[in-house]
Structures are given as C-alpha cells and as structure tokens.
C-alpha cells in the first residue's frame, strides 16, 4: 500500500510502455502515417501493435475484476461514463486530424522526447498548450 511501491510500479510500467513503443516502430511518425494512408502503400503494423496490446490489456482487466482492490492502491480509478456524447465524437475527430497531419499521438510523442529532436519538442509543447486551452475552456463553462 506504500506510495513508494506505487511509484516504482508506475515507473516500471512506463518503462515497459516506452520500450514497447520503441520496439513496435510506432515512434516513427512516417510508419504511423503509412498505416493511416489506406490509399497508398498501406502499412498494417499498427494493427499488430494494437492487437497485441489490447489482448494482454484485456487479460489484465479480466484479472483485475477478480480483485477487491489493486495490489498497491486503495481503489481502482476507472472511467464509468457510458454516454456517447458530442464532446467525445468532436474530440476524437480533432485528435484524428492532428494524428493524421503529424503521425504523432501523445504516447509516442512523449516517449520520443528522449531523442531531444526539435520537431518533437514543438509537437509536445503545442500539445500541452492545446490541453491547457481545453482546461481553460472547460473552467469557463462551469
């Protein structure tokens, strides 16, 4: 239950995630755009990445359902909403446009920060701005 164990577990999980992204080839925006480019020389890699990831993730989810609480924390922190609403669809559409334009989604972009490449810094900085803009807008509406 200690915070230290939880932090170490999160660090190890993050390391595995970054290692997986690097191995899978998904740090390469050209490869990701090759998957989205169904009119060109389509690269199905992302299907294998997502397929492998969802299978193991589903096993973990199935196992977690048999636990009263997580091994190192007091409770599960899971989204509960099931409503398909406008923000969900609009947000996913906008995200898809940015993903198609750049070939970057948040995971690979953050992992690629370790390369120190300037274009990655530009993407992550503007991504943080976009998140902050949403935070301001959401606060304004409340």
């Amino acid at each position: 239950m200690s915070g230290g164990a939880r932090i170490l577990a999160a660090l190890a999980a993050g390391l595995l995630f970054g290692l997986g992204l690097a191995l899978s080839g998904m740090l390469d925006p050209a490869r990701v755009r090759g998957f989205l480019d169904i009119g060109g020389a389509w690269d199905p890699s992302l299907v294998f990445v997502l397929g492998g990831a969802v299978s193991v993730s589903a096993l973990g989810y199935g196992f977690s359902r048999r636990l009263a609480r997580p091994a190192l924390a007091g409770s599960f922190d899971l989204p509960t909403s099931r409503r398909i609403d406008r923000p969900l669809v609009l947000g996913a559409s906008l995200f898809g446009i940015g993903w198609g334009l750049s070939g970057f989604c948040p995971g690979p972009a953050v992992a690629a920060l370790s390369t120190g490449a300037a274009p990655v810094l530009v993407f992550v900085a503007t991504m943080l701005l976009g998140m902050a803009a949403h935070g301001l807008q959401a606060r304004g509406r409340r």
Binding site: R6, A9, A10, A12, A13, G14, L16, F17, L19, G20, L21, A22, L23, S24, G25, M26, F48, V49, L50, G51, G52, A53, V54, S55, V56, S57, A58, L59, G60, Y61, F63, S64, L67, P70, A71, L72, A73, F76
Partner: peptide, 15 residues
C-alpha cells in the same frame, strides 16, 4: 512491442 504495451497497461491497472 504491442504485447509489452499491453503488459504495461495490465500492470498499471492490477498494481
């Protein structure tokens, strides 16, 4: 790589 990513997600959820 996908299997490792899935393992990471499973670990973060279960632990």
């Amino acid at each position: 790589g996908g299997l490792l990513i899935g393992l990471s997600a499973a670990m973060l959820l279960v632990l």
